[in-house]
């Protein structure tokens, strides 16, 4: 949220004034100024949240008592990795899992970054 705030701070107030003069209401201003100018920051948060969510561990660890909960319903990828590595001592398997996770996140991030020029605008003339 602080990152969004910093992004909002960077949008010049003049744009809103100009839009208001041109008769754009608040909603229109939000969609035509705020969202496009904030899109680089939105992209950043999207990528970071995606990576972070794939690596979600602490919540699953706590809520399932470190085991994955009832019927493994909260057995997340990283939690499984942790259990394999530290509880069953399958370090090789756990390391392999970590690299596969890296691969998955890498591919998804690459897709997001590649398609970002469809919806992310970087200011004037691009």
């Amino acid at each position: 949220m602080i990152i969004f705030l910093a992004g909002l701070k960077q949008i010049p107030q003049e744009y809103y004034e100009a839009a208001a003069v041109d008769g754009a209401n608040k909603v229109r201003q939000f969609f035509s100024i705020t969202i496009p100018l904030l899109s680089p920051v939105i992209l950043f948060n999207l990528v970071m949240q995606m990576i972070g969510t794939f690596q979600a561990f602490t919540q699953a660890f706590i809520i399932g008592g470190g085991r994955g909960g009832v019927l493994n319903s909260t057995l997340f990828y990283t939690l499984h990795l942790y259990i394999q590595g530290w509880a069953y001592r399958e370090m090789g398997y756990a390391s392999a899992m970590a690299w596969v996770l890296l691969l998955i996140i890498g591919v998804l991030t690459a897709i997001v970054l590649r398609t970002s020029n469809l919806w992310v605008s970087y200011g004037t003339g691009e």
Binding site: A6, P40, V41, L43, V47, M48, T124, G125
Partner: peptide, 17 residues
Amino acid sequence: AFFVFLLVQFIRSLPKE
């Protein structure tokens, strides 16, 4: 890298002009 990526995104939105 978190901050490098963050700053890249911010700097990219500054006009090259």
